[in-house]
Nucleic acid binder design. Sequence first.
RNA 1: GCGAAAGUAGCUCAAUUGGUAGAGCUCCAGCCUUCCAAGCUGGAGGUUGCGGGUUCGAGACCCGUCUUUCGCUCCA
Length: 513
Amino acid sequence: MAIKPEDFFKNVISHCKEYGYIFQSSEIYDGLSAVYDYGQNGAELKKNIREYWWKAMVQLNDNIVGIDASIFMHPTTWKASGHVDAFNDPLIDNKDSKKRYRADVLIEEHVAKIEDKIEKEVDKAKKRFEGFDEAMFRSTNARVLEYQIKINDINNRFKTALNAGDLAEVKQLIVDLEIVCPVSGTKNWTDVRQFNLMFSTSTGAVTDESNIIYLRPETAQDIFVNYLNVQKTGRMKLPFGIAQTGKAFRNEIVARQFIFRMREFEQMEMQFFVKPGTEMQYYEEWKTKRLNWHLSLGLGKEHYKFHDHLKLAHYANAACDIEFQFPFGFKELEGIHSRTDYDLKQHEQFSGKKLQYFDVEKNESYVPYVVETSVGLDRLFLSILSSALKEETLEGGDTRTVLSLPPALAPIKVAVFPLVKKDGLPELAEKIINTLKFDFNVTYDEKDTVGKRYRRQDAIGTPYCVTVDHQSLEDNTVTIRNRDTMLQERMNITAIYTFLEERVSIKSLLKSL
RNA sequence: GCGAAAGUAGCUCAAUUGGUAGAGCUCCAGCCUUCCAAGCUGGAGGUUGCGGGUUCGAGACCCGUCUUUCGCUCCA
């Protein structure tokens, strides 16, 4: 009974909503496109993933420290990083070919065509007249002058419109010039829109150009601008890393596929500073380490693959993605980039401050190279949740929905039930909860038959259920039932803590690395 | 952004050519019940995404808009 990937993905989304993992933002107001909220279970799962990453990075590596920097940064940061200039183009789409163009390029190309016509006139005249005075011809020939006036008009209109931010006028110009799409040959254009990757707001009570401030589109720059602070105060020696988790914001043109691409999302990044020339060694090392971290979650090796970037960004000398097989195909989960000294050098240049490291062995100062690991927390969440969700057919033809989350990451670690809600069983269950709740997230349920309660916990991914029965009152033993195998074993109440500690703690997961 | 499909109770879905919005599950209060969802009684929950229009009458038809999924596009 194969289920279509498309339908399966819909199941994941509705399961997330039904069991308190993810809600659409502002749902009662019809929602906000590509923004989602984590519910009571989602927040726990997300927190556990973050904690596992943080401890694996910061706690297990004595040369990596963590910071928590702010979302607002000095506007010059984004000039230095290249984000301000990279995404500021007026764009227009042709509705027939569905191709997107930069409006300024379309107009420039049109102007270039008119210039070609002038050149043709000049060439023709050159051949016709002996002792041809080109400058004189250009300034007096009626046809050339007409073309030249046209060009000047276009350029003036375009400049005025652009400076005034009048995008309707830019479109009108394209319409007036009867510019057609090179692919479809039609003039069926959308409106001109200005796209900027970054969200902006302003500081202070008065809004004007001077106090525009951006929400960071990536967390990496916080680490670069704090590089020297951390290195000096932490007495860090190369190679060392700075880790950070936090929100980033991108005004995506198309944000889709549930929490895979959101406008507000959370990154977990680590920038590893190394001696120039050693970066490839550490690049390879981190590729291996990060893949192993993912594999430790037990979602299945076959779901992961590396994708090496053939076309490198201007700052990188090596880059790859760890891709995961989502319900909609293999997509980027984590990026590992060798960023050279590009970022620190840019910040040196724009800030005028030296961001160098004094190497006592070589007795010289230099700007370190950087190897970055950057994973999307929300994507990680989706990878875990979508591979955990299963519809099982049991003996006897029953089906059950089970969320086989890695036990250490599950929102609720254990549920405690009284077999029936009388005869003192609820009281004993409560006692057990009181011994466990300081170390584990525990829940209690006495409604409906115990079988039904097991299934409820299966659906939210609780790895273990403890059931108190009449025998418990006599010999202090309970049954503990495994989510995945559905098998039960009987143990003494005092043994529960250690049993769980070995199976559902972040510590148990860290030890497996 | 373009194109396609969809939006009715918390969930999954009904509602004849336009004629009083229903069911199952869930949830809540009880009853019954000695370990894997299905027993009994009662109850809650909906301006049919939102706004207009056509009509005596709209969940259905028309227009706009929002949201979601899919394809294209985009993703230094």
